[in-house]
Design a protein around this nucleic acid. Structure first.
Length: 988
DNA sequence: ACAGAAGCTTA
DNA sequence: GTAAGCTTCTGTT
């Protein structure tokens, strides 16, 4: 070894303990062998020997050795029998890792050094001296203070966990003394971990001050009487012997007899196949991949090598058996991402051949609920290197639960406050990013210290979140997808526990929120946000929440999400619902996330003009109403209105609501108006104008995003029982269309300059589904012919020709057709048509005579729902009706109607979902710029370049009309009407 | 400040 | 008769 050479000495034993406590646990997939310390070690060594420029050391070593303790008994025990006597046995899952790390060292083709009777620190001191004598530099890979006495001009330390170099200035900064005085300092302070006594009452601050004053330990002890503080003086005088003994214990021996010299430590390039053989055995797949790339080895050609695993009872004993690498993941423990690529999943309860999906479900359930959720056990990650270690473990595990914490429920506006991840049940961490110290300070408080900068944290997490071989598990994924997408991260592949629950349990009580699922499946109540951030007026942003509390809350989310996934995912297979989840639910999430992010342009000028007109109209009506009533009542109060109309004015035909109030429904007021009463007419008109104003023209401008200048609705995937989406904030699925006044609001929804809006909607999709599932020949024929379905129905029922049919006849048939979809009742039909119930009953009877298949369909659906407690769409989506067997006849009848409707509404919802999932790719393949913006149950709204309108419409129509294929070949054609215009009113 | 009822908008 | 969401009023907390 010569000048200019650089020796790296890794404190292997120290690293093991530090890694074990700092890193999240990881077990080998095939047999549960604990490996997190081994993985951390391998990652570190690989980085130090290959990517030195990526570390703070910044140097590629020429010589490299890993040093270990030989055993716990050393020469220091002869000096002081109590030395390290208070050390308890290492944790059980650490024991096998001691041997594995030595084997890892050899696999890296690195010297593995240990000598009986000496600690690793003594060997390090000895090699440091030898390197120094050869004028070479040394870096000690450790952060142990016991080694800091060695730091000097040619010797530095490097903390691999914090990616930090420790030189003379760092030692002084930390301990207040230069490295050469570290021995004296430790002699005074002692070390409770190693049971080095020191002087009681003297800590590092006092020790540094005394050494500053007296120079060194011997001088201090000789002149101890000069110390002013009584207690301190007496303690030092009384414990001088302990101080001397401590000095002997902490002084490293730099003349340990060693075999061979530093030249044995010359760093050789790794032996690719040998190293890969070891890494494969450990099942470190991502490191295997990196090593294979760097060494140009074909990893697939390398066989895993047997490794020796030591058990707890024979920590230093001989070979106790070979770790057998897993040949392949068993089917039940493997999840598949969209590309059909198998993604390995960590399986603690190992499924065996012959296990049924149901058995696996049961095992997983026991497993997930076996360990209690302890919110105090979570970790706050405040340091990039620690985050990297978690990322490495998640990479190897192939699975990670993830959650974001923000300051807003709106993902388009939310700022990221923190992130949480979980790698195994109970092992979760929170990464605070933007917490502020808000202790009531009028100045607003500053940013809390020791938070990883957002850019750095995201750069560290991006490779994990986008890695094709790591499954990300998220509750209500779409929110996080939008938030992370705004930070340039596209999470994939993924599972969404909310959607899994929705597929399994739609229609059962409780909903699919994390709180509900945790309660239901884990028997655990999650921390409520309002416990941390308050509610209402006292609500504070998540950035104001104390980090410890935020950690418990946020990491719990990741932990609960992971546990829920372990419970729920296997149930999909057990119940035959995997394809519903994988084809109808999961792929829709990124589609909707993109639609929400695009938003739609709204012309605020049009809305404000409409608001003015509506206000004028309403004001005029208000004056007229006050005139008629004789006083200024609150027209918006149904209570006051009812009292005036039916009490004071004594109008006829009043009825009561279920709370005993007079009903003032539009239907009832319309009837009164038809009898010539002036006031009810004006009230109905007033209500329409104020409704349009408050709900639409006044409210919509408030939803225009400050940056994008567009309106971004939020679609809920798991809010309805039938599989429909819902829209909120704002709801763009109930924009008026029926009245001329209402339609004007749609003119405010516009295409950007140079673009057009294209609206494409399914014609009579639910009736077509009915014709298909109930197999009604006349209806099928009518749809095949493109005929007027309601006219055909009327013609069949009333024996009148379609030609010249009175509109009232067609209207009644139309009402019956819709009635069927809604699970018809004579009561409902009578209400709808304002006819006696007997007459409505007669119509229904007639209808069933003409279309007996519909009665069969209704009876079969009721019977099925009663037997199974659920019904299914033609694509297998399951909708539960737990109350279908209720003894209450009206409850039972309601559930029967709902289940009849659910098959039709749900099937239609499935069809448009399938179209949406395929749409983006179809447009891209056709090289069209068209983008899907809105979904309104049977309608899709697009924005597309004006020049591409003609090319876009056929693509859109083709995707929508063929959406049921190839899963289901419908016996009725689907028909789509599509138009383009500058605004939604004209396009629709 | 919140919850429920009434009423109205959509498919 | 099915499925949703939003606003206003009203009474309670």
């Amino acid at each position: 070894m010569k000048k200019g050479d650089h020796l790296f000495l890794v404190d292997g034993s120290g690293y093991i303990f530090r890694a074990y406590h700092a890193l999240p646990p990881l077990t080998r997939k095939s047999d549960g062998l604990p490996t997190s310390a081994v993985l951390g070690f391998c990652n570190m060594v690989w980085k130090l020997t290959q990517d030195a420029r990526n570390t703070d050391v910044g140097i590629v070593p020429t010589h490299f050795a890993v040093i270990f303790d030989y055993s716990s008994k050393t020469f220091r025990n002869d000096l002081y029998p109590e030395y390290k006597a208070n050390r308890s046995a290492p944790p059980e899952d650490l024991i096998p890792q001691f041997g594995l790390i030595r084997q890892a060292t050899r696999a890296f083709n690195l010297p593995c050094i240990e000598t009986e009777g000496y600690e690793a620190d003594d060997l390090i001191a000895t090699y440091c001296r030898l390197a120094c004598e050869a004028s070479a530099d040394t870096t000690i890979i450790s952060s142990d203070k016991d080694l800091m006495q060695l730091v000097g001009p040619s010797v530095a330390m490097y903390d691999p966990m914090k990616d930090r170099q420790i030189g003379v200035p760092e030692v002084i900064e930390k301990w207040g003394v230069p490295p050469e005085k570290m021995i004296d300092l430790q002699a005074l302070t002692g070390d409770s971990v190693d049971n080095v006594p020191g002087v009681p009452g003297i800590g590092p601050k006092t020790a540094a001050q005394l050494l500053e004053q007296f120079g060194d330990l011997d001088t201090l002890l000789a002149r101890a009487t000069e110390i002013k503080q009584d207690k301190r003086r007496e303690s030092i005088i009384a414990n001088a012997d302990k101080a001397r003994i401590s000095r002997d214990l902490v002084t490293l021996k730099n003349d340990v007899p060693v075999n061979g010299g530093l030249d044995d430590f010359v760093l050789h390039p790794p032996d690719g196949p040998r190293l890969i053989g070891f890494l494969k055995t450990m099942e470190f797949s991502s490191l295997t991949r990196r090593v294979a790339e760097a060494t140009g080895t074909e990893a697939a050609d390398v066989k895993p090598v047997p490794v020796i695993i030591e058990r707890a009872d024979t920590a230093h004993g001989p070979d106790m058996g070979f770790g057998v690498p897993a040949a392949a993941e068993s089917a039940a423990g493997t999840v598949t991402d969209e590309a059909g690529e198998a993604v390995p999943a960590t399986v603690k309860v190992e499924p065996k051949q012959g296990d049924t999906p149901s058995l696996l479900s049961a095992l997983r359930y026991e497993d997930a609920t076996a360990s209690k959720i302890d919110t105090s056990a979570y970790v706050s990650i405040r340091d990039t290197e620690v985050l990297k270690a978690w990322v490495a473990v998640a990479m190897e595990a192939g699975i990670v639960a993830f959650d974001t914490e923000t300051n807003s429920a709106d993902p388009m506006q939310a700022e990221l406050i923190g992130l949480s991840i979980a790698t195994a049940p109970g092992r979760a961490a929170y990464v605070p990013l933007a917490h502020k110290s808000g202790n009531g300070d009028l100045l607003g408080g500053g940013v809390v210290e020791n938070q990883i900068p957002i850019r750095e944290a995201l750069a560290t997490l991006k490779p994990l979140l986008e890695d094709r071989s790591v499954l990300k598990i998220v509750q209500e994924l779409k929110y996080d997808l939008v938030v992370m997408s705004r930070h340039g991260i596209d999470i994939a592949p993924f599972d969404d526990t909310m959607l899994i629950s929705y597929v399994l349990e739609a229609g059962t009580s409780g909903g699919h929120s994390m709180a509900a699922l945790s309660e239901k499946w884990l028997g655990h109540s999650t921390i409520a946000l309002k416990e941390l951030a308050g509610s209402g007026r006292s609500f504070v942003g998540f950035d104001q929440v104390d980090i410890d509390k935020a950690t418990a809350y946020a990491a719990e989310h990741a932990d609960v999400t992971l546990r829920l996934w372990r419970v729920l995912k296997p149930r999909l297979a057990a119940k035959g619902l995997v394809s519903v989840y994988e084809r109808l639910e999961r792929p829709l999430v990124p589609v909707l996330a993109r639609m929400e992010q695009r938003g739609i342009s709204v012309d605020r000028q049009i809305l404000s003009r409409l608001s003015g007109e509506l206000a004028q109209g309403a004001a005029r009506l208000e004056d007229e109403i006050y005139q008629l009533v004789g006083e200024r009542i609150n027209i918006g109060s149904p209570k006051q209105l009812g009292d005036i109309l039916f009490g004071r004015m004594g109008l006829p035909g009043g009825s009561k609501t279920k709370t005993g109030q007079w009903s003032t429904s539009a239907q009832l007021l319309e009837d009164l108006a038809a009898e010539g009463h002036e006031l009810p007419r004006k009230i109905v008109d007033w209500r329409q104008l104020t409704k349009l104003k408050s709900t639409y023209t006044d409210a919509l401008p408030g939803f225009v995003h400050p940056d994008t200048k567009r309106v971004h609705t939020s679609y809920a995937l798991a809010a309805t029982t039938t599989g429909r989406l819902s829209s909120s904030d704002p709801n763009l699925q109930n924009i008026p269309v029926r009245t001329i006044e209402g339609r004007k609001i749609r003119t405010a929804f516009i295409a950007d300059k140079g673009n057009k809006l294209v609206s494409a909607d399914y014609s009579q999709i639910e009736l077509r589904v009915l014709a298909h599932v109930a197999e009604i020949p006349q209806l099928k024929q009518a749809f095949a012919d493109g005929a007027d379905i309601h006219a055909i129905t009327a013609s069949e029922m009333f024996n009148v020709p379609v030609e010249g049919m009175p509109s009232e006849v067609r209207r009644r048939a139309k009402a019956i057709n819709f009635g069927i979809i809604y699970g018809i009742s004579a009561f409902g039909l009578a209400n709808q048509l304002s006819i006696p119930r007997e007459e409505a009953g007669a119509y229904i009877k007639k209808y069933f005579e003409r279309f007996p298949g519909i009665r069969d369909y209704i009876d079969a659906t009721k019977a099925y729902a009663r037997e199974y407690g659920y019904v299914e769409t033609i694509f297998g989506r399951r909708i539960h009706y737990p109350e279908i067997r209720s003894s209450n006849p009206s409850v039972r009848a309601f559930n029967e109607r709902a289940s009849i409707n659910a098959r039709l509404q749900g099937t239609a919802a499935d069809i448009i979902r399938r179209a949406m999932i395929r749409m983006d790719e179809a447009l891209e393949k056709a090289k069209l710029s068209g983008r899907m913006l809105l979904q309104v149950h049977d309608e899709l709204v697009f924005e597309t370049a004006e020049a591409e309108v003609e090319a876009t419409i056929p693509v859109v129509r083709h995707v929508m009309e063929n959406a049921a294929m190839p899963a289901v070949s419908m016996s009725v054609p689907l028909h789509v009407d599509a138009r383009a215009a500058n605004n939604w009113e004209e396009a629709h």
